[in-house]
Design a protein around this nucleic acid. Structure first.
Lengths: 297, 297
DNA sequence: ATTGCTCAATAGAAGACCTCTATTAAAAAT
DNA sequence: ATTTTTAATAGAGGTCTTCTATTGAGCAAT
């Protein structure tokens, strides 16, 4: 039964019978039969399909919701039992938005001190994707903005507040200032994240409210790319203060506080609201609570 | 997998392989094999057994906890899908303490108006048993005291506050009074519930604090038995006000408020903390919230 | 100690169920 | 109209499950 629910989850991820089957390491007829059996035992159609996958019926969506929970719980059970016997081992899959990537090590480094057998997979993605991955059991934890509405059932642990700096070289326009306003920043050509990133949308909003409007000279979904440009001293960017300092500044590169308003958004750890949590996640939450006071300003 | 978890739950209930097997409608070797397979796939011993069942290992207890949740969720899923197709049908199993039995109809009657295809099983038991039955998926909802610590993960809906009356005939000692004190009641021979019932323990405590000590002439776990005695006018009892009035008083029988102190305890609906709830239970919670204001005093 | 009883594990056979390969059928894309 | 993509179906093989029957271990009473 649980394996059939896994089939359903894979189908929801892949939206394609054959690919879902491959993800489950079975053949396509096997997965088809599994879905069909679910439909038979529950007595309702779960998937609308012509000769190809279309979508889930309303009942299918509800079953999908239960399937996520039941499969998640059954994995958590296995993991907990394994941890009781072998200590904390396995892989922790973290999904994080790009602006937080440089601070993830403040979680993973002490975690690894305590639990050396745990491996990590960190995936950079948009804030929507973070929640989507959590929902679909494709990530164990996320690091993202806490201010907006959480999509699924999640537990949040605040980590720090993100504040904004103009990164620019000392000899560029505004480069000699102690602080600048968003209105002033709006007039400078910037390197920014792509608009699918929440950080970009936040900056757009702040610039817009200051009467400007962002016309980035360069967009990317990679912080490394943005930073390597800014580092030359020939480009400018708006970055979270913590990110700028952890990437390191150079002689010419300055991180100038942006005021009017002195905006800030809360960044935190987000994990599935499962009680009890899996041991791997519980340890991460513990670490986050330990680290958060050290990150506060 | 889920069926093996059901085996484990049955074993926890019955503490006996053969009886657990019968409860699952399989033979004893099948159940034994199922438990063994669970142990193999999880890689730990779950059950301590010599030639007979002893108890669960610590790992077994944890797995049992997960099993309750997973099995509960999978039943809830089935029920929800069934309800989507056929409306609310099935059987709602309610566990209630004896003093609340006469008010259960205030929940079930309007429930049945709305959902005529739902059948009910109401079981009278002690408050500990209510929580135990809920925990083990043997009851869907409970009606009991809310004041004491809830054992498992439950959601509570307050219904009314239980206040106490001396039920006695008008011509018996104290029978002509408008109110009596617990100290006075302590001197009257009473018919009370057996000491495994929380209501009895509450009354014992109130009597004790008033300097008396309960020496009931007659004990029973059945309210009907107590009431039928009191109704003759030859016996007295302490009963919750709401119970006394819903059973009905006679010419000679009076329900006299007991003061010093005017004690009261909250009675409420208790259901498993599952999100979302099964449709049957969700409807009962809705009914309870609807009814509670009408019961308030 | 011996006997008898209860209970869970084991053996082995029958059958249910699952998964595979190969193929078909239907819809979409070209 | 033809080709391609995609899911369902058919049928064989194998695995897993469940059953009956039996064994063996522990416990109690003699």
């Amino acid at each position: 039964m649980i394996d059939k629910l896994e089939f359903l989850l894979a189908l929801a991820r892949e939206k394609h019978f054959a690919r879902a089957a491959e993800a489950c390491s079975v053949t396509q007829p096997t997965l088809s039969a599994g879905i069909k059996q679910l439909e038979d035992t529950l007595g309702v159609l779960l998937v609308n399909r012509s000769s190809r996958f279309q979508d889930f019926t309303p009942e299918g969506e509800r079953v999908l919701d239960w399937a996520r929970r039941i499969v998640g719980d059954s994995r958590a059970m296995r993991q907990e039992v394994h941890a009781l016997k072998h200590g904390l081992t396995g892989r922790l899959r973290i999904a994080a938005i790009p602006t937080t990537l440089a601070m993830i090590e403040t979680l993973t480094t002490p975690y690894r001190e305590r639990h050396p057998d745990v491996k990590f997979t960190v995936r950079s993605c948009t804030s929507e994707e973070v929640l989507h991955l959590l929902d679909n059991l494709e990530a164990d934890a996320g690091v993202t903005y806490l201010d907006n509405e959480p999509v699924g059932r999640v537990t949040q642990v605040p980590l720090y507040r993100e504040r904004y700096r103009l990164l620019t070289s000392a000899d560029a326009p505004l480069g000699n200032r102690d602080k600048v306003t968003w209105a002033e920043v709006a007039k400078v050509p910037l390197c920014l994240l792509t608009p699918d990133m929440q950080n970009r949308r936040i900056i757009d909003r702040l610039l817009g409210e200051a009467g400007g409007n962002a016309q980035p000279t360069l967009e990317s979904n990679s912080m490394i790319l943005l930073y390597s440009h800014v580092r030359t001293g020939r480009w400018a960017s708006v970055m979270p203060a913590r990110l700028a300092t952890s990437l390191g500044l150079t002689d010419v590169l300055r991180a100038i506080p942006i005021v009017k308003p002195e905006a800030s958004y809360t960044i935190g750890l987000v994990v599935p609201a499962r009680e009890p949590m899996t041991p791997l996640i519980a340890a991460l939450v513990a670490e986050a609570k330990r680290v958060a006071p050290l990150l506060a300003d």
